[in-house]
Structures are given as structure tokens and as C-alpha cells.
Design a protein around this nucleic acid. Structure first.
Length: 804
RNA sequence: GCCCGGGUGGCGGAAUUGGUAGACGCGCAGGACUUAAAAUCCUGUUUUCGCAAGAAAGUGCGGGUUCGAGUCCCGCCCCGGGUACCA
């Protein structure tokens, strides 16, 4: 028997698979049930494919192979999310055109991806930066626009006054530009938005989705539906009304000031021409330098604001309270909050600016004084100094107080969402152009669908920006066009789309990737979607996964597709770090899979990644244990290639085999590849000693096929079972055979393990207790007192409670 | 800050609904084979005390519930992800 030559074997089968078209699937096939196994497609960065990608893609492919062996027609496509900021930044630095660097990266990554030996059907590849694809991204934009779901409004961006360019959040470090180091400001620009807020309630419906609970929790919190009320505070002088939003109307009697968001238009209105105007300007520019996180963080040092010179009247008790602009208030709800001692941020702000505070809730309803406290009293308790509501528990009082506020006409109960509309326009070059035209006569005009794509010009100067304009604005050939309505001179919309738009519908395109006259074939899409299994990182929980659901719902509501949700089952892989940090080029800790694949082969590398730990947990990369997998592969190969004249115990072999089938099947179903591999190892060690027959060998090769496809294919050939192992039928286990008849369970005395008994699996309580009492060690401990309780949990434990 | 995860031997990790903590693998130690080494195979390997039998402690920290807690409850600490222009 030869040693197993992984590299040679893998090369052979990759070639064979490609030539036979084993993984090119017929999407129109009717015989088998369909299974759409989707992986979040990669961004073709300069780092190329790293270990994190492999960690994601290899197990995902193992799952796809498993499903194919379960008899499904499995569709596993691959593509590239190839628009985006990094390519543009790289271009600005090096002068290499994004198109060029992106194509090069894709080319390289295709080669790397093929090393995995996955079942990708490359005939169905999509590349989001290709005109054939973004033509239809533009089509998606038009559908939203035509149905009132895309609109323009002013919105602030990070602005570097020196570079005269819009900065991504990532490019802002501690309030300064990461290119020139100067202070970053805010600037209002007219931007395109998608009305995702119209779908807030629909997006909160997760029924029928097999998603991780944590992902649903994160999305729910992100959408942030809250029930509260708007309360009107009339200004002391004049007619102006400040409408506050609160979920804590129970604290209305403790309000000692109001806070307005710096972005709120009323701030300027109230201070214009007053002595407070200058101070507002000064403080606001300070706030502009803060990130959202700094603005809303706890800790008094971050709090910034100023008095606006106005007072408002608390409608419930008629008290006069000062009005402040405050950094921690955002344009969420009404952009105005009533502030009091029962909120930590309000409390800190008040302490910093010497605003009086008072409590109205305490544990027992006895008055307490903020002067005695370091921070806010945020617990629930009994109300005091709260008019008719004094003495009530605050949570009980809350709905009654909201009723009272509404009944007296001081405000109304409302529902609020944290979710904001989706800002989709970018003042950048490397993206899909927004298919709109601005005509002096006709105004905002959509590009007719038959004129798509609006092609991204190659000649635009993207190296420098000025006044925050999109680089496309400097391409005359691009900008000038005829108005689709009046035919007169018009200018194109120079902004491009957020890359999240590209990735919010790509799963619809895969089955129809080569279709030229439509975004997707309706029949084919309705057949293949929703995606049965979607695998990708948890970092996408709130944005990509929400955007994709939203776009899918819109296209559903417009009648283009017949399914509401795009992803039936979702699984997140964990993150692979290096020395505890996310791999990134800037940290210089990116580990390439190539050297390991070249040394050990893709099967060993794939199994090592799966063996590292649970798929959903990720972990810190090190290559220490990879030899263990390499040894296992050798042992497996040896087991398959050894002819055993005699099998020592056929019964043990059968039982262990069926236990193994059960274990591997159940583990793959829930993505516990690590324990599936451990079980395979255990069995292999057993079989090498005990011997194994041909029928069992066949099953073992099938069991390892999803985990080590090349090895399995080679073994399958050795065993002469014909065609490909991936098209064989996944082995079934015999429930009876997969069970032990006798088991070992522990014996405890007062909760401490004092021995072990071997009994029949279904032994009676009396039998178990008797066996336990026979143990001399147990007897010793039982003799120390009187047995007051006997415990027998079948299959688990025998216990005695002894009192002395 | 807020939302969501995680913390178990020297290391990666295992452990249905609370029921013998440490499967499997790496590393390490000893042994076999070999002139020798590599490879392979065998044995051992949570810590402390002990020749051993055995005993005690032990799943980030501090409490609690329970005959029994890695698992449940309360209060902390640390690490990671997201925080709306990285994708």
C-alpha cells in the first residue's frame, strides 16, 4: 500500500470533476428536490482569500455535499461583491484603476477558490461591478423610485475641509481625517434614501424563518420599536411648542430641563439674533467632531451642550424648565427629550451644566435626594411627588399617566422606531451609478429601463474630490445627456449606490446570472428561492441581512417574486482572528491559506479548520494541530486500503458504525463538524485495531465524503463503487443498533461521585440502587449516616443523600 | 454608552432538558522499532498531597438555588462583533 499523496490525488479529482461537469447543475431538473445553498460572496480585496474565507466556505461546501448525498439537487453558486471603497482608496494611493485592481483580485481569488474543491457552479457566477449585473441593480433602484420608496433629502456627511472630500466613518479617527489628520466637520448634502422605515413592522415578522435567535434579537433591537408618547411643552414666551418623545412618561414630574438635538432646526430658530447664537455655533462644531458613539456614551466628560435662553412649561405640573441643546440627543423620535434624574445621561449632563435635579421614584416611595447620589436612579420603584400618581409603582402608573397626558390634550401615545431610512447615495466613483437625470425643465427624471445600464465611465478622475461632489461629475461624457422626457439638455445624477444595494438582491440573480433582458427569470427564481441555507458572518446581522430582506419584500409586494423572505435558514460562522484581532492588511496579520493547502492539501486544511472548534464560534488561528488531521487522513487511507482477513468483533463493529452514522449525520445537520470529525477519528482508531469489512468501508467513505471530498473520491475509486461518491445515497443508521444495551453511570453520595456501576440501559430503579449499594466505596460513605433520599435518573445517575 | 456573543487542562476544544468535567486532537514525558534519526506504534498526561489505595480543589470573579451547577438566578470583571459611508 502506498502512502496517501494528497496533492496528486486532489489535482486528479479537480481535473476529473471539471471535465465531467459534475457540479454544473440543471436548474430546470424536476426529479430531485431543490436545495439552494448560499454563501455570502466575498469582496475581492487586495488581501485576496484569507483563512477566514476558507473557514466559511469549506464547511458550507461540506454541508452542500451532505445535502446532495441526501438526494437534493444542490445549487451552490459563487460570485464577487466587487464595488466598494477599498478599491477606490487603493486607486487614489497607487493610481491603479479600480477596475483593473478588482479584476486582478477576482482572477486570483477564483484560482484560490477552486483550490477548495467546492461544488461551485461557475457558470452562474455574478460580479456586481460588471455592467451586466449593475444594470439590474439600477433596475432595482428604479422600481423603488417608481413606487415612492426612493427619495432625496439633505443629510449630514463627514467632511474633511482640507481634502474637500466626504469621508467614510472608517476614515475618521478621533475626529480627524485619516489622510491629512485635520479636523473633520459635518456637511449637509442632498442624498438619496430608500424608505426602509415603511417596512419596519413587516421586517419585525420573523415567522417561518430558521434563524439564530441572537440575529433576530439584534435586528429587532436595531429596528427598535418602542411604545411611548409625545408630550408637548409650550415655550414660556411665544407660541412655539417643543414636542418631546419618551417611553418613560412616569418620570414627567421629575423633569427639570429639556434637551434638543443639535441637528434640530428649532435650535437655530430659537436662538437666531439672541446672545446665545454664537455659543450654539461653537458648541455644535465641537459636537460635529464627535462620533455617534462618543456622543451617546456614558461618562460626564463626553457631554456637550448649551443653554438656549428659553424656558418651557411642563404641562403636568406647570413648572418652568430651561431648554438646552445636548449632544446625546439624536434626531430620533421628535429630536427633543424631557430630561430628569432618572436617566443616567440626563443626570450627567445636569451635573456638568449645574442644572437642578429631582427624583420622583424610590425603592419604597420615601423621598430621596439626587444630592446624595453619584448617578441616576434608573430602577423601578414607588412614585412620590407625582400628583395623583404618588404611591403607585412606576410601571403600573406608566400606562395611566400616558392616558392622563393624552386625555388632557398634552400629547399623544405613539410608536417609534430606531430604524432610519437607508442612505444609498455615495459621492464616489467605484459603484453603480444612480439611474436618474436632472433636467432644468422636467426636474428629477428616472432613466427609462430600456436605456439601462447607465454605464460607469472609465475616464472619470476619481483621484481627488472637490466640494464633496461625486467624481463622476468631472466626466463630461458621462454627465451630459438628453432628458428622457423632454429631450432637452440634462445632467445625470453623479452619485453612485451604496454597495449594500448590490448585495441586497444578488441571490435572486444567481439562477439567471446570464439572462440579458431581465434581472431574473421569474419562474426559475420562484422555483429556486428562497435560499434554503444562507451562511455568512454575524457582522451582517443588522445591515446586509436587513437590507436584503427589505428589497426582497419590496420586489414581492410589486409582484416580481412570490416569496416574502429571501433566506429560510441562516447560519453564522464565527470569526477567525490572528493573535486575538480581526485579520486585516493594516494590522499586517492576514494569514493566507495557500501555503497550508500547498503543503497538506485542501482536505486536510478544510478538516483542520472544521476541527478547530464549533463552526459558529470561530477562534484564534494557529497551525499547531494540523499534523493531527494529516495523521488522521493517513490512518483513514490505511484503514480503507487494508484487507482484514478477520474482523475481531463484528458486533462491536456494527454497533460503533451505526453510532457513528447517527453522530455524523446529526452533527452535520447542526454544523458541528468538529465533533463529527472527532467521532470519525475515534472509529478509525477502533477499526485499525479491530478490523473492518468492505460494506462498512463503503459507509465510512460516504461519511467522510462531505468533509474530505478528494480523499473520499479516491477511496471510492479504490473500493470500485463506480461514479462519484457525492452521487451515492447517504447511509442510514439502524436506531436499535446505534444504542448501547449496557451503560456505565455514576453513583453520587451527597452530590459527590463515589463510584460507577455498569447496568442495563433500561434497568429498574431497584436494580440500579442495588448495584450502587454493592460498591464498597459507596457503602463506606453510606455508613456515615442515615440515607434520607435515593435518586435514580435512568441513563444518568444514581444518588444517595446521607444525613449524619 | 447601547445591542449581540464568548471566557473550561500547557494549547484547540468535548460535555441532550442541571446528572461521572476534560471526548477527540496538538504538545509534553516514558517505552517499542532503528546503527541513528524521521515516520509509525504502545503507555501516561487538570492541579495539589500521597509509594499506593485514596483524598481535596477545580469550568473568568463574588454570591445564591439544588441531593447535585460548566449548564439556572443575582451582582461584577475581561475579550470579541455591530453601532447605519469597511464589507
Amino acid at each position: 500500500m502506498k502512502n496517501y499523496n494528497a496533492l496528486q490525488v486532489e489535482k486528479k479529482w479537480k481535473k476529473e470533476w471539471k471535465e465531467s461537469g459534475l457540479y454544473e447543475i440543471d436548474l430546470k431538473e424536476k426529479k430531485r428536490k431543490k436545495f439552494y445553498n448560499l454563501i455570502m460572496f466575498p469582496y475581492p480585496s487586495g488581501d485576496k482569500l484569507h483563512i477566514g474565507h476558507w473557514y466559511n466556505y469549506a464547511p458550507a461546501d461540506s454541508y452542500a455535499r451532505y445535502m446532495r448525498m441526501q438526494g437534493y439537487n444542490v445549487f451552490e453558486p459563487m460570485g464577487f461583491d466587487s464595488f466598494g471603497l477599498p478599491a477606490e482608496n487603493y486607486a487614489i494611493k497607487t493610481g491603479i484603476h479600480p477596475k483593473e485592481s478588482t479584476e486582478k483580485n477576482i482572477e486570483y481569488m477564483r484560482k484560490q477558490l477552486s483550490e477548495i474543491g467546492a461544488m461551485y457552479d461557475w457558470n452562474k457566477e455574478v460580479v456586481t461591478s460588471s455592467p451586466e449585473y449593475y444594470k439590474w441593480t439600477q433596475w432595482v433602484f428604479l422600481q423603488l423610485y417608481k413606487n415612492g420608496l426612493a427619495y432625496k433629502k439633505n443629510s449630514p456627511v463627514n467632511w474633511c475641509p482640507d481634502c474637500k472630500t466626504v469621508l467614510a466613518n472608517e476614515q475618521v479617527q478621533n475626529g480627524s481625517c485619516d489622510r491629512c489628520g485635520n479636523d473633520v466637520a459635518k456637511k449637509d448634502l442632498s442624498q438619496w434614501f430608500f424608505k426602509i422605515t415603511d417596512y419596519a413592522d413587516k421586517l419585525l415578522d420573523y415567522s417561518g424563518l430558521d434563524w439564530p435567535e441572537k440575529t433576530i434579537a439584534m435586528q429587532e433591537n436595531w429596528i427598535g420599536k418602542s411604545y411611548g408618547c409625545n408630550i408637548d411643552f409650550r415655550l414660556e414666551d411665544g407660541e412655539d411648542i417643543l414636542t418631546t418623545y419618551t417611553t418613560r412618561a412616569d418620570t414627567i414630574y421629575s423633569v427639570t430641563f429639556l434637551c434638543i438635538a443639535p441637528e434640530h432646526p428649532l435650535v437655530d430658530e430659537l436662538t437666531k439674533g439672541t446672545k446665545y447664537e454664537a455659543e450654539v455655533k461653537k458648541v455644535r462644531s465641537e459636537i460635529d467632531k464627535q462620533t455617534l458613539i462618543e456622543r451617546t456614551s456614558e461618562g460626564g466628560a463626553n457631554k456637550l451642550g448649551c443653554f438656549l435662553g428659553k424656558y418651557a412649561i411642563n404641562p403636568m405640573n406647570g413648572e418652568k424648565v430651561p431648554v438646552y441643546m445636548a449632544n446625546f440627543v439624536l434626531m430620533y423620535g421628535t429630536g427633543v427629550v424631557m430630561a430628569d434624574a432618572h436617566d443616567q445621561r440626563d443626570f450627567e449632563f445636569a451635573r456638568k451644566y449645574d442644572i437642578p435635579l429631582k427624583f420622583v421614584i424610590s425603592e419604597d416611595g420615601n423621598p430621596i435626594d439626587p444630592a446624595d447620589f453619584e448617578g441616576a436612579f434608573v430602577n423601578d420603584g414607588i412614585l412620590f411627588d407625582s400628583g395623583d400618581f404618588s404611591g403607585m409603582h412606576n410601571r403600573e402608573a406608566l400606562p395611566k399617566m400616558m392616558d392622563a397626558i393624552e386625555g388632557q390634550g398634552f400629547g399623544e401615545k405613539t410608536v417609534n422606531f430606531k430604524l432610519r431610512d437607508w442612505l444609498v447615495s455615495r459621492q464616489r466613483y467605484w459603484g453603480a451609478p444612480i439611474p436618474m437625470v436632472n433636467c432644468k425643465k422636467c426636474g428629477e427624471v428616472p432613466v427609462p429601463e430600456e436605456d439601462l445600464p447607465v454605464t460607469l465611465p472609465d475616464d472619470a478622475d476619481f483621484t481627488l474630490s472637490d466640494d464633496g461632489k461625486s467624481p463622476l461629475e468631472r466626466s463630461e461624457g458621462f454627465m451630459k445627456c438628453a432628458c428622457p422626457e423632454c429631450g432637452g439638455e440634462a445632467l445625470r445624477e453623479p452619485d453612485t449606490m451604496d454597495t449594500f444595494v448590490c448585495s441586497s438582491w444578488y441571490f435572486l440573480r444567481y439562477p439567471s446570472s446570464t439572462l440579458e433582458d431581465k434581472p431574473f427569470d421569474k419562474k426559475l427564481t420562484n422555483k429556486w428561492l428562497p435560499v434554503d441555507m444562507y451562511i455568512g458572518g454575524p457582522e451582517h446581522a443588522c445591515m446586509h441581512l436587513l437590507y436584503a430582506r427589505f428589497i426582497n419584500m419590496v420586489l414581492h409586494d410589486l409582484g416580481f417574486i412570490n416569496f416574502k423572505e429571501p433566506f429560510k435558514r441562516l447560519v453564522h460562522q464565527g470569526m477567525v482572528t490572528k493573535d486575538g484581532a480581526k485579520m486585516s492588511k493594516s494590522k499586517g496579520n492576514v494569514v493566507s491559506p495557500d501555503e497550508f493547502v500547498n503543503k497538506y492539501g485542501s482536505d486536510v486544511f478544510r478538516m483542520y479548520l472544521m476541527f478547530m472548534g464549533p463552526f459558529t464560534e470561530g477562534g484564534d488561528w494557529n497551525d499547531k494541530g494540523i499534523t493531527g488531521i494529516a495523521r488522521f487522513v493517513e490512518r483513514f487511507w490505511k484503514m480503507i486500503n487494508t484487507d482484514y482477513d478477520a474482523v475481531e468483533s463484528m458486533n462491536d463493529l456494527k454497533r460503533n458504525l451505526h453510532k457513528l452514522i447517527k453522530k455524523v449525520t446529526e452533527d452535520i445537520e447542526v454544523f458541528h463538524f468538529n465533533t463529527a470529525i472527532a467521532a470519525m477519528m475515534e472509529f478509525t482508531n477502533f477499526a485499525l485495531k479491530n478490523g473492518v469489512d468492505g460494506a462498512s468501508k463503503k459507509i465510512l467513505v460516504q461519511l467522510i465524503a462531505p468533509l474530505a471530498p478528494h480523499l473520499a473520491e479516491e477511496c471510492w475509486e479504490v473500493l470500485e463503487h463506480g461514479k462519484s461518491v457525492v452521487d451515492s445515497v447517504w447511509p442510514r443508521f439502524d436506531k436499535k443498533l446505534a444504542q448501547d444495551t449496557t451503560i456505565k453511570i455514576g453513583v453520587q453520595v451527597n452530590g459527590k461521585v463515589r463510584g460507577e456501576i455498569k447496568i442495563m440501559k433500561d434497568a429498574s430503579e431497584a436494580e440500579a440502587l442495588e448495584a450502587a449499594r454493592k460498591l464498597s466505596k459507596v457503602q463506606k460513605y453510606l455508613a456515615e449516616g442515615e440515607v434520607v433520599k435515593e435518586i435514580y435518573v435512568p441513563g444518568k445517575i444514581v444518588g444517595f443523600v446521607v444525613k449524619s
